[in-house]
Design a protein around this nucleic acid. Structure first.
Lengths: 304, 304
DNA sequence: GAATCAAATGAGAGCGCTCCCATATTTTCG
DNA sequence: CGAAAATATGGGAGCGCTCTCATTTGATTC
């Protein structure tokens, strides 16, 4: 009998099923779009989405995308998830760490996973991130080993823990090498090309022999500023980026950078969320994925 | 009574409603991910998605994203839309023009809108595109007016009409200026940086004084190849791109390029689809959005 | 004020499923 | 071989809505 059903190609009506099970077999992905990175570092998001999509597709879930561009969008999304229960759970991508959504989710008991390390509610939140601190530490240590001493850092958007953690790794690396941190060499940026360009101009005034950029887009901005001033990379100033975007290979010199597994980050976040939904949840899961320093030319050390 | 309901903040259960109305208030966005542009020219997709999202949010629809990476994904998606009727309609983004999905949608009477000009079924398909031919015509004509005669073209992925139409515009512009088309100056690419780089190497052998690249990513590849060989842009070779990505401003010299309204493209596609769903459809709608040639430095004509 | 019509209200069926319980069938073991 | 257990099958009830039809209420007209 069951065999017959299967052979007839019977497909249950999802609406009817949802009505009785209270489950929609759908998750939401929310992107508070304010971070302009969504557009500029447009590689990160498609890759993340692709990772999430891999998991949801495999496990027969649908993925709803919510790009929050205004407070109104925010309200609407919130209705959908809380009142309507349109989605069984949600993945929050690239949220500032004071993101109010997180509080709402906790209050309303909505299953969710962050793709950022949060700073609050650490005991009850699941997330997957990469080891930004260690990655930044390695990157900066690499520069130090190559003999650089005045290393500048252009940060990412400091409302996002990824960026904050990278600054921390930078500080630790200097500390470990016995180099005093010169606060003037830390320039606040926002993951954009422009902040790389302008940050570089500031750092040049203060004198540096290397720059660690918070991401590759920023690094491209650095590179442009240096090229325009005929400053040789890496001879005069060495450069390290973060992300290993395709673009890292498309500039001269090729960027030394930190590769992070963005696709896996998304895929894993989705896995964790779906496990929660399937009751296999249990404790909140907090995953830190490893990164890898990819050594190319911009740091001054050709790969072995 | 109605007023009371409204004030109580009553929210109907979407599953129950869907069960009886056969409508889900959700549309799908399908991206056959094969075109590697999804990752490399990652600006286009986020922007398109944002446009779609604007419309769906305004009209209280949900947006489901389907990234098709394998034949299996394709099957699954197809079940969801056809058998399950999980979505009321779908937007097909950046499909090759022989995309089999289109036939399926027509057979199963599924409402859909393309974000590409299709080559078949022109009488019964709604789509929104930009005037690629006119845009390419203008771009190339601009180069001709600046005195260039041997203008090379590195094409996009020729399975996508955007790319084919740009070639057509290129040909027409030469024809209109009385310049014979030299087929050797048309190099097939695929919208990637690499194809710009390698295409340039070929064009250099054949001798050109200008290059029209199918998009800005390709143009960046061109630029890198020329820089490496110390060929001055625009003095020796002029360059025009397409898309007006943020990256167009982040290279030296700044790219002259064609700006296309990608966000509107998505927003409009969504509007058309939702109109169809709301019964305001009627005839298929086919919209060609205008583009704009943005003159910067890479073509050799500084803006007025 | 009675008759007519429009609008508001109420009751009930049904959308297609899952879940529970009752009955029927098969299997297992003493 | 018969009793007990395991499994399979069948028959509701109910999820929360919309839609239709019948009824009631209110407004309108002569």
């Amino acid at each position: 009998m069951l065999a017959v059903i299967a052979q007839e190609g019977f497909a249950p009506n999802p609406a009817a099923r949802a009505l009785v099970t209270q489950r929609n077999q759908a998750i939401g992905v929310v992107v508070p779009i304010a971070p302009l990175t969504f557009f500029e570092d447009a590689f990160y998001f498609p890759t993340l989405l692709q990772g999430i999509s891999q998991t949801t597709s495999k496990r027969d879930y649908a993925m709803m995308l919510w790009l929050i561009q205004s407070e109104e969008d925010n309200q609407k999304f919130f209705r959908r998830i809380t009142t309507n229960r349109l989605m069984d759970g949600v993945i929050v991508a690239s949220a500032a760490f004071d993101e109010p959504l997180v509080d709402h989710f906790l209050e309303t008991n909505t299953p969710f996973v962050l793709v950022e390390r949060p700073t609050r509610h650490l005991d009850c939140v699941s997330f997957v991130s990469v080891d930004n601190t260690a990655a930044a530490y390695d990157a900066v240590t690499h520069l130090i080993k190559l003999g650089r001493r005045r290393i500048g850092h252009i940060t990412g958007n400091l409302h996002i823990t990824d960026a904050v953690d990278r600054v921390e790794g930078y500080r630790q690396a200097l500390g470990a090498a016995g180099i005093a941190v010169d606060e003037a060499l830390i320039v606040e940026g926002n993951f954009s090309h422009r902040s790389g360009y302008e940050g570089t101009l500031q750092l040049l005034e203060r004198g540096v022999d290397a720059i660690f950029a918070a991401n590759d887009i920023t690094a491209r901005g650095v590179l442009q500023a240096l090229h325009e001033r005929n400053i040789a990379v890496p001879d005069q100033i060495a450069l390290v980026g973060f992300d290993d975007l395709p673009t890292a290979l498309q500039v001269t010199p090729k960027l030394t950078t930190v590769r992070q597994p963005t696709g896996e980050r998304g895929a894993l976040a989705a896995s964790i969320l779906l496990d929660m939904l399937d009751g296999r949840g249990g404790q909140p899961r907090q995953v830190i994925l490893p990164t890898q320093l990819v050594i190319r030319s911009s740091c001054g050390a050709a790969p072995a």
